[in-house]
Design a protein around this nucleic acid. Structure first.
Lengths: 160, 160
DNA sequence: CTCCCGGCTAGACAATCTGCACAGTGATGC
DNA sequence: GCATCACTGTGCAGATTGTCTAGCCGGGAG
């Protein structure tokens, strides 16, 4: 797992991504090699999935976010998955328990455009029912640092 | 909006984040200054929200993802939001239309741990009802490139 | 109690990249 | 025709990266 230094590195690079390894080592009061080694390890273990820039759909003009729950015909998951992956506005899809079989996160330019996207979505005959939830506002913006902090504290407890 | 070159820049940095401006300019067959200027503009306009590394909760040991829909007492949104933001396993929360008032994305170490997280969640008296959907598998992994491509194509159409 | 090993520090090197600047050029809009 | 804007190609100084080295330290193994 990760320790406190890992957590501080992740936090620093999350808050100031352009900082660089050298400056990070200065801020954290550790040797550059240490930061470099930690970063390499975080990459290898998959904790850092990628350094790719985060793109904001809203800034691209897709200001509406919605979640669609789809009921699909038995055994049609593969074909529906293929169908969904062809729609750019579909950002992610999960198989879920409970009512509905698939949960999709989708975006659209506006409410009218959302209708178009949903029409695209349900254009697959294997989708038998849908319900859509429009995200009106973001109460807690996507975040990961609290979890990172939590994970590193657990590590300390475990170690001692 | 963004054009084809912007899209190619975003794609390149998404696929190979460590590439650097210079190498990117070579790959894209444009001047370094151009890539630099485009990147600056994408940052300024918010298309690139951040260059922060993407942390994978699963690699931190939080292998279960779930979505919780909460019904909350009238006018208690503020206090519930504060409550939710204190729970590290709550990664994001949206206000939504339809049944339920809030949609939360949460993670946990395993199914038992999920129970603990949900108990934390509903520990607020202003939450009157919850339903939880466990994500069993990821059908379409979080992605943004198709949308970027789509947006840039639209721009071309608009420009011409 | 002693030895070994992994992780950290501190320093050094060449190679590379970044930030910034500038003049020239082609396309666009007026 | 003219001004504007974006892109090109280029240069430079300064900083950073990737990679190594050697020494130090604390914990775990035996």
């Amino acid at each position: 797992m990760i320790d406190g230094l890992d957590a501080r590195i992740l936090e620093l690079f999350t808050v100031e991504p352009r900082i660089g390894v050298l400056e990070a080592s200065r801020r954290l009061q550790v040797a550059r090699g240490t930061v470099q080694a930690r970063l390499d390890r975080l990459r290898e273990t998959g904790v850092i999935a990628t350094f790719a820039p985060t793109v904001d759909p809203a800034a691209l003009g897709f200001r509406v976010t919605a979640f669609a729950m789809l009921d699909i015909r038995q055994g049609a998951r593969e074909s529906v998955a293929a169908h969904l992956s062809r729609i750019p506005e579909v950002l992610e899809v999960h198989t879920i328990t409970g009512q509905g079989d698939l949960l999709c996160r989708i975006v659209a330019r506006d409410n009218d455009d959302l209708q178009r996207v949903i029409d695209d979505l349900v254009g697959d005959d294997d989708i038998v029912r849908t319900s859509t939830l429009i995200a009106l506002s973001t109460v807690v913006a996507p975040r990961i640092l609290p979890l990172v902090a939590s994970a590193s504290e657990t590590a300390v407890r475990t170690t001692r």
